[in-house]
Amino acid sequence: MSARAALAIRRWTPLSVAAVGTLAALAAALAFGPLFLDANALDRLTTLFIYVLLATMWNALAGYGGLVSVGQQAFFGIGAYAAIRLSSFGVGVYPALLLGGACAAALAYALSGFALRLRGGEFAIGMWVLAELLHLLVNLDRLIQGETGTSLIALNAFSPEHRRDYNYWLALASMGALVALVFALLRGRLGASVQAIRDNEEAAASLGVRVLATKRILFVVAGAGCGLAGTLYLATSISFQPATYFGVQWTAYMIFMALVGGLGTFEGPILGAIVFFLMESFFGATGIWYLVGLGATAVAFALYLPRGLWGTLEERFGLKLLPVGYRVAGAEGDGPARGRT
């Protein structure tokens, strides 16, 4: 009994408190970005925020929930399409962009009853099929003019300078809010339940986990995040071509960022998004060789660093900046250097 009394549950460490504080301070400082950053830096950072948002969403689904989707471009595309449609109905352009994310969440909810009954590879491919189907349906809307596409012309009511600032703030706020929401959800009851489902769905059900309802929450949040990313991308590019927004390359990028950073770690995909962003910044103009380089990098990670950058650091040094799990202080292996598995 004395052994039991000496134990305590520890979730935060001084390091992780410092990390969260630093990130919050960084986000607050970035909010003043338009005051001290040039136009190019603002545009690039807006893109980075979109990537972090996408990587975090895909990681939440696949890394924590075991829901490997190859069809997240469905929500990216629908978010952008919904914003255009709403704007055409007279909704203010920035509210329409935000509501686009909400429409993607609603779509995820509507699809969840069907999609989440699929398992493993069936789910992965089924999502891709759904994305293609939605792409074709959007093409039927005359407003979109098929693959020719259209533009969110209402954005022209704002000067390019103002638009750049608003897009930057919207992207920063969306990323901050969604990443914080996923972090809070994964630290809460939902986090342990989704990981249990990921590791063994039948066992999770036998222990009382509401499998479908639990997966649905994750799926809807990820749909909202990917939808918002789509509307943010629309806000920066203005033009909407269905083939671009519903392209599977968006999911390929998400997978790349999550795998390179470290699937199933909270920090990893954020790091992966930065790596992807840097590769794009330096090599994106090289066209086909850039894509070859992305593929080669992904293969190299899969072969030699399967846990990704952060996953490897975490394994070696027990490093956790944004912990979603639990440590039992007083039991063996509760120190920072956790036992190798």
Binding site: R189, A192, N200, R327
Partner: peptide, 26 residues
């Protein structure tokens, strides 16, 4: 509650987290 003939641990979670899921969900 039940146990399984072939154990079905939640492999990616710690032993404590395995039981915590049971305590909170079940």
């Amino acid at each position: 509650a039940r146990s399984h003939q072939v154990p079905r641990p939640f492999g990616g979670m710690t032993v404590f987290e395995n039981t915590l899921v049971a305590a909170s969900a079940g």
